[in-house]
Amino acid sequence: MDAASQSLRDRWKALSKCVCDGARLMVGQGDYAAYAAHVARTHPDQAPMSEVEFFRHRENARFGVGNTSGFRCC
């Protein structure tokens, strides 16, 4: 494979990741790997949530669980 094909493939892969990440964010699901990297970088003394805990946290935030402002999905 030549360099141009590899470059195009890398750019396509990066674009696909951006589109998928954007779609996840639109429905309230963040990127766990990005979250874990952020915690490791900015809060090295804290353990990150597990992937399941992170998913639940994002779901709760999306649907207003524990929110006192009155928002409710259904």
Rank of each mutant, 00 (worst) to 15 (best):
M1F: 01
D2R: 06
D2Q: 04
S5Y: 04
S5G: 13
Q6I: 03
L8P: 04
R9Q: 09
D10W: 15
R11Q: 10
W12E: 11
A14W: 15
A14V: 15
K17V: 15
C18Y: 14
V19C: 13
V19I: 15
V19L: 13
V19P: 05
G22M: 06
A23D: 13
L25E: 12
V27E: 02
V27G: 00
G28A: 07
Q29N: 08
Q29H: 14
D31P: 08
Y32T: 00
Y32M: 01
A33G: 08
A33I: 11
A34I: 07
Y35V: 01
Y35F: 11
A37V: 06
H38P: 03
H38Y: 13
H38V: 12
V39C: 07
A40K: 11
A40L: 05
R41G: 03
R41W: 09
H43I: 09
P44E: 07
Q46T: 14
A47N: 11
P48R: 01
P48M: 05
M49L: 15
M49E: 05
E51V: 04
F54M: 01
F55P: 01
F55S: 00
R56L: 08
R56E: 11
H57V: 00
R58A: 09
R58P: 08
N60R: 03
A61S: 05
F63D: 00
G66Q: 03
N67K: 00
N67D: 04
S69A: 10
S69T: 12
G70M: 06
F71Y: 14
F71S: 02
F71M: 07
C73L: 13
C74P: 05
